[in-house]
């Protein structure tokens, strides 16, 4: 459903060129949840933006359902749902108005949109604040609204960019339920998250991204055999050491034992 091939993106900053994504390739099938994992600045968000067609790749391509983002952006966008922790909402619209507005943007006929809204209200339990303005709802409620918004046009592909950022345990759980639900619906899901424990439980396959490059890719079992690590967290730490992204002094400081007065001994 999603095909990413040799995707490359460079940014220019203060006369210098930064390679944000470097020849990235992977694919995601229907009903598959793909975890794009990596530290901050690894290129996860840039990759998602290129898949949506919001950024133009310098090389390579991303395609959804056979349509390339760079050539047929509108076809691609109509097949995508996007959930991001940074997604804003219109403060002066009610939840109902905003959801119907986005259904309209995605070309859902008004009658179908109203019916879809009822289904999603039941699914996400939005009834209590459906007619409240978005500016007055809580962070957790806001995240539910954003997830419902991405589903208004029933997209076959869902992209989730750090969907649990800023959420508490309950809020995060709703997101995980959401991903499970999407998998059951046969939606191809790409999720970028730093909640590695949950990602390990939810995703079918993983892509470990570091400095724009796909460091490892495969199922958990494949990654375990290749990296000789049991968990994604261990794999990540290994990745950090390889990439030299750790702060050695800080690491040393926290690993040195404390003396009786509470001072570090090392």
């Amino acid at each position: 459903m999603i095909q990413v091939s040799n995707l490359t993106k460079r940014f220019r900053s203060s006369g210098q060129e930064v390679l944000a994504v470097d020849r990235l390739s992977f694919s995601i099938d229907r009903g598959e949840v793909y975890g794009l994992l990596g530290p901050n600045g690894a290129g996860k968000t840039t990759t998602i933006r290129m898949i949506v067609g919001l950024l133009q790749p310098d090389e390579g391509y991303a395609s959804v359902d056979g349509f390339r983002s760079s050539d047929d952006a509108e076809e691609v966008k109509s097949r995508l749902g996007l959930v991001s922790a940074n997604d804003g909402i219109y403060p002066w619209l009610t939840v109902r108005e905003m959801l119907l507005f986005f259904a309209d943007l995605y070309g859902v006929a008004p009658a179908a949109a109203r019916s879809r809204l009822e289904e999603l209200v039941a699914l996400f339990d939005l009834g209590d604040y459906l007619n409240r303005r978005c500016s007055v709802i809580s962070t957790g409620q806001r995240q539910r609204v954003i997830m419902a918004r991405a589903l208004m046009h029933a997209p076959p592909v869902m992209l989730l960019d750090e969907p649990t950022r800023g959420l508490d345990v309950v809020g995060s759980q709703v997101v995980f339920d959401y991903i499970q639900y999407l998998r059951k619906q046969g939606v191809a899901v790409l999720v970028s998250t730093h909640r590695l424990d949950e990602a390990q439980r939810l995703c079918n396959r993983f892509g470990l991204l570091h400095q724009g490059r796909l460091w490892q890719e495969g199922t958990l079992a494949e990654l375990q055999s290749r990296t000789a690590s049991n968990t994604l967290v261990e794999m990540f730490m290994q990745l950090f050491r390889v990439g030299g992204n750790t702060a050695p002094a800080l690491t040393q400081a926290v690993t040195d034992p404390l003396d009786t007065s509470g001072q570090r001994t090392g």
Binding site: S78, R79, A103, Y106, G107, V108, A109, A112, A113, S115, R116, E119, L120, A122, L123, F124, D125, R144, M147, L151, H153, A154, P155, V174, D177, Y178, Y181, K184, Q185
Partner: peptide, 15 residues
């Protein structure tokens, strides 16, 4: 989110 929704949401035609 409501667990185990009874029926999957219908799919409006995307266009």
């Amino acid at each position: 989110m409501v667990d185990n929704p009874a029926a999957p949401p219908s799919s409006p035609r995307v266009r």
